[in-house]
Structures are given as structure tokens and as C-alpha cells.
Design a protein around this nucleic acid. Structure first.
Lengths: 188, 188
DNA sequence: CTCAAAGTGTACTGGTCGGTAAACTTTTGC
DNA sequence: GCAAAAGTTTACCGACCAGTACACTTTGAG
């Protein structure tokens, strides 16, 4: 149970930060909701910012792990995986606890360019871009980097729209749009 | 100078909220940065939330006014206006003060479903959706609602991506993507 | 069994939060 | 020119903010 308490803190803090936002979540609330004492928190993380960065690192890891696994379950070929990405997103949008993308939210709250929190968010998007670009390459797209960019645009757009309008419909719209882009990238 | 002080307060508060975020901006900072006394603020707006809603209403109005005017300057036909939208966005992304979409940011900070701030954000996106749908209809798209949705997805995706990655490039990517969607919606 | 690491509760700091009270000055309409 | 409306300054409220100090208990490895 040695490294568990720290991980447990990060895991529980993730839930609260995602639900209520970063600035709106004080360390006192975290103490109340995680059951971890404040003293212990500040033994693991020197500042709230350090804790948030740790939370984002966990989120990056666990989201991508879930996402890529789900896509693999839903489709076999690279081209189908690209389309299935939006089915996976749709499932996410329909969760009760869905609150948009944590990295977009973090970027909205911490605007300073060189903020490590913001850099963590940028990193997450970059890794997802690479994921889509790889799928595009494997699918035989004419310009994999370009198709990857476009798929990412659709994904981010679908997240923001579904979150603000409170419907999972954008996932379907994005999927059909992706189909058009995929066809265009594979033809000729 | 009767209605001016209130409008001036909202206008200046907009700048600060956009730059620093909503929760990170206290009323005391607003007093310091706007030159309007706190007493006077609370005479116009009963709560901080009311002020934020007023700020968002102004933002909705002024952003759309700027955006639609700029699009009209850049293109003549409805189809070209859809494409020119992304040129206008690109100009916005390159402004030093660019900090992403204020409504996306507001939605990230205020997550409660029935929060008036969130509803204001949803309204803004809905009005922009209508704008794109109208352009799509005028352009003779097969399914204007569908094309409108897709253009909106690209726009939101470009905003989020450009904001987090700190480059205006997504505007170009989105424009070329929109061209493909437009062709698809006009052909046959 | 023992000792150190890891965890705990409680109380505290100085500063900021959103919001209010009261007494005063300026601006405006008639 | 006079009253009301709109503005101001200053001081204050209780609550919460991030972060610390200290004395205490639990836990795990040798």
C-alpha cells in the first residue's frame, strides 16, 4: 500500500477536478472528497499546480488507453478504426459524467502560454494527432499528416459541440464527415 | 454619460475575463482594471454571475458582427463565404490577444447543466450553426442542415486546436477540409 | 520487536473571495 | 437651482483560498 495512496489521491482528484473544474476545486474540498489528509497531499505534491499536472498525466494515459482499446474492439482495418473512433467518442459523450475534454477545459482555465498545465494539454493533443496520422498512413491515405489533422479537427469539434449543446449527435455528424474525408484521401 | 458607464464596465470586464478567465478574475481585480467602483458594479449587476452573462451577451453580439462583416468583405457568393469564414478565423487566431473561444472557455469553467452562463454559450453556438446552415442553403447544398453542422464542427475544432497548439495553421486545414465537404454537398 | 516511513487531525497563516454598509460627490433632467 | 439618480471612497463581513506547523498514529520491512 506504499505507492497506492498517492495514486489513489490523483485518481480521486481527477474525478473532482473533472466534475467541478480546477479553480472551483479547493484543496479543502479535495481533502473532504478524497479522504486524504492535506498534510499528506502536500508531502506528495508541493503545490496545487503539481497535483493538477499529475492528474492530467494520468488522464492522458487512461483516456488514450481506453480510447485505443475501444477503437480496436470496434473495428479491424485502419480505415474502419478511423471511423470507429467517432463511435467510441459517441459512447463517451453519452456518459452521465461527461464534461467535455479535460485538456480543453484545462487550457481554458490556464491561459498563460508557458504554463506547464497548458503544455500538458498541448502534448495530449499532439499524441492524439500522431495516433490519427498513423491510422491514416496504415489506411493508405495520400497525405496521412493532412488526413490526421482533419480527423483531429472533427474530433475536437465534436467534443466541444456535444459538451455545450448537451447531445451526442455531433459524434454521428463527425463520423459521416470523416467518411467523406477518408474516401477523398483514398481515391485516385 | 448615463448608460455609458455600465456599457464601459461590461466592455472592460470582457477584456479581463477573456484574458485571465472567469474564476481567476475577482471583483477586486475588476475594480482595479476598469476604474469602476465596486459599489457601482453591484448597482448594475446583483452578482458576478449576472455580470458574466452580460459580458457573454456583448461578446456574442460583437463577435458575430465582426465575423459576418469580415466574411462579407472577403467573399461574394455563399459558397465562397463558407470558405472565407476560415480565413476570418485565421486572422482571429493570429491576434496577440487570442485566447480561444470565450464561450468554450465559459463552458469549461461553469459545468452545471442549467447554469445561465452555459446556456448563453449554447445559444452562441446555435446562432453560428444557423449562420452556416443559411449559407449552405443559399449555396445550394443538398442538405444544408448537415453541411452547416459539419462546418461548425470544423470551426470549433480549429478554434480549440489553434488555441492549445498556439498556431493559426488549423484555420487553413479546416478551410481545405470545408472545400471537400462543400464539393460533396454541391455535386450530383 | 523495532524503527523509520507514511499517514493522520487540528489548528493556524496571510491573502483573496463575493458581496455589503454608510457617508459623500458628481452629473443630470426639469 | 434643486432634487434625484448615479457615481465615488473606505471600510468591513464571513467564507474560503493555498499552504504550513506540530504532535500524533499507523504500517511495513528487517
Amino acid at each position: 500500500m506504499r505507492p497506492n495512496k498517492k495514486d489513489e489521491l490523483v485518481r480521486k482528484a481527477l474525478t473532482v477536478f473533472y466534475r467541478d473544474g480546477f479553480h472551483a476545486t479547493g484543496m479543502d474540498k479535495l481533502v473532504a472528497e478524497t479522504g486524504v489528509s492535506k498534510t499528506s497531499m502536500y508531502k506528495h505534491f508541493r503545490t496545487k499546480e503539481e497535483l493538477i499536472v499529475a492528474v492530467l498525466k494520468l488522464r492522458d494515459e487512461s483516456f488514450r488507453e481506453w480510447f485505443e482499446r475501444r477503437v480496436d474492439e470496434l473495428a479491424d482495418t485502419p480505415a474502419d478504426k478511423i471511423l470507429a473512433s467517432f463511435d467510441a467518442l459517441g459512447e463517451w459523450f453519452e456518459e452521465d459524467s461527461y464534461r467535455g475534454c479535460m485538456f480543453i477545459n484545462a487550457g481554458a482555465e490556464f491561459n498563460c502560454k508557458d504554463d506547464p498545465i497548458r503544455q500538458e494539454a498541448a502534448h495530449h493533443k499532439q499524441v492524439l494527432l500522431d495516433y490519427f496520422t498513423n491510422l491514416a498512413r496504415q489506411a493508405g491515405a495520400r497525405d496521412p499528416e493532412l488526413l490526421g489533422c482533419r480527423i483531429l479537427l472533427l474530433k475536437e469539434g465534436a467534443i466541444v459541440t456535444s459538451s455545450l449543446l448537451g447531445t451526442a449527435q455531433p459524434a454521428c455528424d463527425a463520423k459521416e464527415t470523416a467518411r467523406i474525408l477518408l474516401d477523398e484521401a483514398l481515391k485516385g
